[in-house]
């Protein structure tokens, strides 16, 4: 499969909401294992693009290719089945539930006792601790999520999203809760994840500093149009800002 073309190809994707043209014939390619940073002002079309890639929205026109195969994501579940995982802005965690409960929510493990299926709590706890430890972190999985720091919450959301071994991980603005130190931790963590499992990532953020350190490629959007796509080294933060502003 290696070298058989890009992991993801987006070709002439448009999305209209009534008269509003949220995306205008957008095209780009992304190789396997690379991180793409997606930046732009509010309303530039970042979220719309992400929603199309995660199956939440259908494009008005255009085509998506996954490993050179034309694909449509009919729903988030369909996209997930085809190897797309997403961690949202608000991380989709239940604050008053424990770490391991959040980690396995929606895909709980059970064991059978006679005809009945009961939760396999021990195994879920063990696997949660193991998954988090894999990227060099340890924290008490018995604690409620609300007691954790922003970066710990981020780590749970991301490790949970990549549990199913997706091909592509989409991260939507999930860094807004972080402290300066926390941000550094997350950059290291995501870099580690990317290296360790060779996962392709698309990251949306307003934090240009973070995007610049983490991404291999950067794409700048403005009013639904692609203003720049290129290697991170080829663009400075000042230039990114220039592209973002009208």
């Amino acid at each position: 499969m290696a070298g058989s073309g890009p992991m993801l190809e987006v070709k002439n994707i448009s999305k209209n909401f009534g008269k509003v043209r949220a995306l205008r014939s957008m095209s780009f390619e992304l190789e396997k294992g690379k991180i793409l940073g997606l930046v732009g002002d509010n309303g530039a079309g970042k979220s719309t693009l992400l929603k199309i890639l995660s199956g939440d929205l259908q494009p008005s026109a255009g085509q998506i290719y996954l490993e050179s195969k034309a694909t449509r994501f009919k729903s988030p579940a369909d996209a997930m089945k085809k190897g797309i995982a997403i961690a949202y802005q608000f991380l989709e965690l239940v604050d008053i539930a424990k770490v391991w409960e959040n980690f396995f929510m929606g895909r709980e493990l059970t064991k059978r006792i006679g005809p009945l299926a009961f939760l396999d709590v021990q195994r879920m706890k063990y696997l949660t601790a193991e998954a988090i430890a894999k990227y060099g972190h340890t924290f008490d999985i018995e604690r409620e999520v609300r007691e954790l720091s922003g970066e710990q919450r981020q780590i749970i959301a991301v490790t949970r999203a990549i549990e199913a071994n997706p091909e592509i991980l989409l991260l939507d603005e999930s860094f807004t809760l972080l402290s300066l130190d926390g941000r550094k931790d997350i950059v290291n963590f995501l870099g580690e994840v990317n290296k360790k499992i060779g996962i392709t990532m698309i990251i949306v953020s307003h934090d240009l500093e973070l995007i610049k350190t983490l991404s291999h490629y950067i794409m700048v959007l403005r009013a639904g149009e692609k203003m720049f796509f290129g290697h991170t080294d080829k663009i400075s933060i000042d230039q990114i800002v220039k592209y973002m502003l009208p």
Binding site: A77, M80, L91, V94, D95, M105, R107
Partner: peptide, 11 residues
């Protein structure tokens, strides 16, 4: 605890 998070996780 959080029904929106549950929907997003397929519950």
């Amino acid at each position: 605890g959080n029904s929106e998070a549950c929907s997003a996780m397929g519950i």
